Simulated assay, not measured.
Amino acid sequence: MGQTRPDMEDMGAFLLVARTGGFREAARASRMSASALSDAVRRLEDELGVRLLNRTTRSVVPTQAGLSLIDRLTPAFREIQAAVDLVRDSGGKPAGTLSLNVPISAARLILPQIVPPFLAAYPEIRLEVVTDERFVDILAAGCDAGIRYDERLELDMIAVPIGPRRQRFAIAAAPAYLDLHGRPEHPRDLLNHACIRGRFAGRPVETWEFEREGEVLRVDPPGQLLVQNGTGTDLGVAAAVAGTGIVALFEDWLQPYFDSGALVPVLEDWWQVFSGPFLYYPGRRLVPAPLRAFIDFVRAHPWPA
């Protein structure tokens, strides 16, 4: 006698519990009770003959077998949802949930320009934005698409330009700091200044890069303050405003401080220009209707060159 196939609803319940991190959390995100979800996961484990979740009173964590199943099931369930969305979309406006994985810089500088008009145009779409500075697999993270810069894009993804296509990495300091310590005239002068540095979690501190008339310079200046890029960036900016040192950041992030006079540009002739970010998503045949609507909306938006 052949083995019975696990029930699709039980597999969906398992994915939901794993994604939300607990049975009560999954119950709040669905129409099922926590006990019904627990029964569904237990049935699935019995069918497969392996434990999929390690349960404690405080947490629910996938086992290695559970992680392997999540990796295989997530794309398949997204294809199913995309097919359902495609059929549903044929009868009216797109509906459903769209989940985006984005860096904090995109959540601060890019999405405010497009999210309000997009949600107004598609009232049946629920948008979930997850801010994450790590280099993650968006599907494994339970997201439909992400925003990253070209050097951090995964190779098998489709990329659509989003946001201004030309950006600059700015250097700034408070007037009081410059009055006390002098103004750098060349990037190498930064080696004699206090600089506020940033790095991504688990990665080395990145050097500051400058460019002028084809000449590229990389400088590793000293400084008392090191912050984590994204979550700690506002602290770095606040410290620069207070006169602690010189900060390097996206020009658009610092522009309000330039406008108010709290910070002033430093070494502007050397600011490096780089291309804007991209919305990226898996190159598959069926794209969920909410994501398709967002892609079309992004492409139609009049971004600055």
Results as ranks from 00 to 15, higher is better:
Q3H: 15
M8Q: 14
M11R: 02
V17Q: 04
A18D: 02
R24D: 10
A26P: 00
A27M: 06
A36S: 14
D39R: 15
A40N: 00
A40V: 01
R43P: 03
A82C: 02
A82M: 01
V87Y: 11
D89V: 10
D89W: 12
S90N: 13
T97C: 07
T97F: 03
I104Y: 02
I104P: 01
A106S: 08
A107P: 03
Q113F: 13
V115L: 14
V115C: 06
F118Y: 12
Y122T: 03
T131G: 05
F135C: 11
D137E: 12
L139I: 08
I162H: 02
F169M: 15
I171P: 00
P175Q: 09
D179F: 09
G182L: 13
P184L: 14
R188C: 06
D189T: 04
A194D: 15
I196H: 00
R199M: 14
T207P: 07
E211P: 02
E211I: 09
E213P: 04
E213T: 12
E213K: 15
P221L: 10
P222K: 09
Q224T: 14
L225V: 15
Q228G: 12
N229T: 13
T233K: 01
A239Q: 11
G245P: 01
D252V: 09
P256I: 01
Y257V: 05
D269L: 11
Q272M: 15
F274H: 08
P282Y: 12
G283Q: 10
P288Y: 05
I295C: 08
F297P: 01
V298T: 03
R299Y: 07
